[in-house]
């Protein structure tokens, strides 16, 4: 489904703020894989996700989605393959537009937009049913402006929007990091439900080791722009937080002590 080969990216090349972010990342996801990504600050997790989404061009390597080389495609051109949820709940939705309008915009991801009406009656019914699944009472508020919703509600809505049209790959970039623990747990539960029910191939960045172990069938650990550890299936299910901490130190040495603090 997704293949990364030798992806490299350096920000601000040739200036004093030059920052190598990805130093050759290779990764392959099969259809239906749910991969969690962990790593300290500056490990390159978000940069990897943004490279896949085409937010910026990469310096080297190839990105293949569903058999198509998308390395040179722009962000909007890649959107047909990707559902995305960002860390900031404000980034995934349009605040001044209605809930149903947001969903209708998302439902046309990767399709040609024309002069047809932006939301049909059948769609409205479909959205009502889908919103009911979230269990947040949004199904009665289709015409409300999204700006009236809480961060958790907005994030749940973004998740639903990202899953419309069954994207080939779902990219979750620390999508629960800005939420309070209770709301984060709820959004994570919805994430699992939506991913399982739609059989979505998923790449989820998280700072929470417990979630990284609990969710998904594969786990990768990044450090200094590289994937340093990978585990899947049975082995992953048996993993403990202590194992991951050990891996961290083994792979990266004592210099990552500060990261360890952050990840605890």
């Amino acid at each position: 489904m997704l293949t990364l080969k030798g992806i490299k990216k350096t920000f601000n090349k040739g200036t004093v703020t030059e920052k190598p972010a990805l130093l050759g990342v290779d990764l392959h996801l099969d259809r239906g894989d749910f991969v969690t990504v962990i790593g300290g600050n500056g490990a390159g997790k978000s940069t990897m996700l943004n490279s896949i989404a085409g937010v910026f061009p990469v310096d080297a390597g190839t990105i293949t989605l569903d058999g198509t080389d998308v390395t040179r495609l722009s962000e909007p051109q890649r959107a047909r393959y990707l559902g995305r949820v960002f860390q900031d709940p404000m980034r995934g939705t349009a605040a001044d537009m209605q809930i149903e309008e947001n969903l209708a915009l998302a439902a046309r991801r990767g399709k040609r937009r024309g002069l047809r009406v932006c939301i049909t009656r059948e769609e409205r019914e479909e959205y009502r049913e889908k919103l009911a699944i979230l269990g947040l009472g949004l199904e009665t508020r289709l015409a409300d402006k999204v700006g009236l919703l809480s961060g958790g509600q907005r994030q749940a809505l973004t998740l639903l929007m990202a899953s419309l049209n069954s994207p080939d790959l779902l990219l979750l970039d620390e999508h629960t990091a800005a939420l309070d623990p209770k709301t984060a747990a709820k959004v994570l539960e919805l994430t699992q439900k939506i991913v399982t029910e739609n059989g979505l191939t998923t790449l989820m960045v998280t700072h929470n080791m417990h979630d990284a172990i609990r969710l998904g069938n594969r786990l990768i650990m990044m450090s200094d722009g590289k994937i340093i550890y990978e585990v899947s299936g049975e082995e992953k299910a048996k993993l403990h937080r202590a194992d991951l901490m050990a891996k961290f130190e083994e792979a990266a040495g004592a210099e990552l002590a500060s990261d360890r603090m952050l990840l605890g």
Binding site: A53, E75, P76, Q77, A79, R80, L82, R84, F86, M90, R91, G92, T93, A94, A95, D96, M97, E101, A104, L105, A106, R108, R109, G110, K111, R113, C118, I119, M161
Partner: peptide
């Protein structure tokens, strides 16, 4: 509606293709 959304949240609109 894509045009209205552009003034609202460009990041989202690009992510939606």
């Amino acid at each position: 509606s894509a045009l209205r959304a552009t003034g609202n949240n460009e990041d989202m609109v690009r992510a939606l293709g």
